[in-house]
Design a protein around this nucleic acid. Structure first.
Lengths: 329, 329
DNA sequence: CCGGGATTGGCAAACGTTTGCCAAGAGGTA
DNA sequence: TACCTCTTGGCAAACGTTTGCCAATCCCGG
């Protein structure tokens, strides 16, 4: 590797421009007005010398890093890359950087990740907690130190959060399935410790009680992977052979169910739907629920920077839409 | 938000333990031996006061951040989350954090992301460059400032890089297709400005020249999405109706091709293969090429930290395996 | 020509840590 | 006992920036 030039400091810019350090700092940041001629001269010197402000020095002084931490339960679930992307854009639009930590679906790792982010001095943390109960201590501990916003998955209603309404898409889903003649719907969740999965399950229960009051409630806990979806599908056909539609808590499970049921296209015996409208759903033509990720992201980032100023807890709920595809024809 | 405790500094720990700041620093970091009793006392004070070293202060002094930058061309291509995850694990194992930037397939954004990472003072950057030529300037500029390692996609052979061998999986693929009676293979790439896609295309050309010397070479440029795969598939059937196997430069394209050809399972007229063995390939039973992501990641992280010490450029090549599935039966 | 207010440059302190240097003490040897 | 070496604690400087405070200058009106 060729020798790396050492960095130009503000001191050298000041010397070059024949001004004091403070004037240079103010000219560059605009913290206070400077005489136009001087401003120009500073800009020119900085440009020519290739000066870039040292974020470490600045952070030490300002006690800000202009950086958001982002804790994700499982980056291999394709919903989260989409969410990350949206949050990154929203953050960039406000001049903030983000640093991502993957919890690997493990509350222990998640907790350590939170500590690490806080030690890294991020200004706030956005988190989709892994586990409804096991993540609670870590979350609250973190929230006692810096602003923390729960995104998508919320496990503590008291702390700030941004989420979607789970009921309305389930209503749309059930209505559609009913209209196409299905009567015996079964829900396959993730682990019941996943906040969103549990909410979807409860919404399903409510909606079903309305739509099919006499139908028994069929709910199966699943897992995180497509594999667990396959297993759940086997169990469903065996346990409740009447089932003519399976509502899944996310796309991974939906894909697994679809695989197990046989992937022949067109009208099929059992309708299947997923959740999150990931590219998986596109790939296998799975009906799914599209979350307004960009709005979620913008709201979350606003909340994070806002939380630094006023201390008002944030609670926002967005609506999402069902995207119907071949799997429910 | 409840009031946030302000941080405990090393000064307070020193006062509490009745020792000097430097002794505390050394006791905690182990930079120099301290008398066991003192070490114990320091540890106890630090623990009790809840002291955590301030990474900003430390970084200012040491001029290190113990953080790696990671520039990804497109986080919604599921190969990259897998790569990110692997790199995160490898980095964590060495006590390093990572900060991720998504280039959104745009060399402009990529360039800015690189600058931002460097401004953030990451110790080194791992990058999968977006564009074979348009990324070059930004890459070299960055490499002139801090250690930069190209991962997976390499566009400058002179700079450090970690990659896989593309030829051997293509050989396996072609051999398998040939053994199952296919004769008229067509390659569908991404844009020819994607380094890996181009390498795969060239490998395909070489291998085909060997295996089917009399067969004309059929190569189609594609795009980044499943959609472009669908379009490519239409073009292939129209332009080269004899085609009985399509080798795609990645899984997204493979999925699109599969969709367009009709997704009926079992032996089909045209065999299809993808690349990267993402969860998409699992979902649609697409034959694909599995890269040794964990090894890539470990090598890349080693290279990044190594580059700080010796200045030896790194060039490593790993082998990858074909995973055969229903799409090539 | 003087006084007062507004504007803007500079000094120096602070943010929290690590580390080179010095000196004090401990322990061993002659 | 005297001397030498080795260990280990403390002082203070440095990393690069922002900003509170003061002072100098300028402009304007009387």
């Amino acid at each position: 590797m060729r020798p790396l030039r050492d960095r130009v400091t503000i001191r050298e810019v000041a010397a070059d421009a024949g001004l004091s350090i403070s004037t240079v700092s103010r000219a560059l940041s605009g913290a206070r007005p400077v005489t136009p001629g001087i401003a120009e001269k500073v800009r020119e010197s900085a440009e020519r010398l290739g000066y870039r402000v040292d974020s470490i020095g600045r952070s030490l002084r300002t006690q800000r890093t202009d950086t958001l931490g982002l804790v994700i339960p499982d980056i291999t679930n394709p919903f989260f890359p989409a969410l990350i992307q949206a949050i990154e854009h929203a953050a960039r639009a406000r001049g903030l950087g983000i640093v991502i930590a993957d919890a690997d679906n493990d509350p222990q790792i998640e907790r350590i990740a939170l500590r690490t982010l806080i030690d890294q001095r991020v200004d706030a943390v956005l988190i989709s907690p892994t586990d409804l109960t096991a993540s609670l201590d870590g979350l609250r501990d973190a929230a006692g130190r810096i602003p923390v916003i729960q995104v998508d998955r919320v496990i503590d209603e008291e702390l700030p959060h941004i989420r979607i309404d789970q009921t309305s898409p389930i209503e749309q889903l059930v209505a559609h399935l009913r209209a196409s003649g299905r009567r015996h719907l079964t829900f396959v969740g993730q682990q019941p410790t996943v906040a969103t999965s549990l909410e979807r399950e409860r919404a399903f229960a409510r909606v079903m009680a309305d739509a099919f009051p006499r139908e028994p409630l069929r709910i199966l806990p699943g897992g995180t992977s497509a594999l667990s979806g396959r297993e759940a599908a086997r169990q469903v056909v065996e346990q409740w052979p009447l089932t003519d539609a399976i509502v899944c808590a996310n796309d991974l499970i939906g894909v697994g169910v679809l695989q197990e049921l046989g992937a022949e296209p067109g009208r099929r015996a059992i309708a299947v739907s997923g959740f999150d409208d990931t590219l998986l759903a596109h790939a296998v033509q799975l009906t799914s629920v599209k979350q307004p990720v960009d709005e979620l992201a913008r709201a979350a980032v606003s909340a994070a920077v806002g939380a630094r100023q006023d201390g008002e807890p944030v609670r926002a709920v967005f609506t999402s839409e069902v995207v119907f595809r071949r799997s429910t024809e």
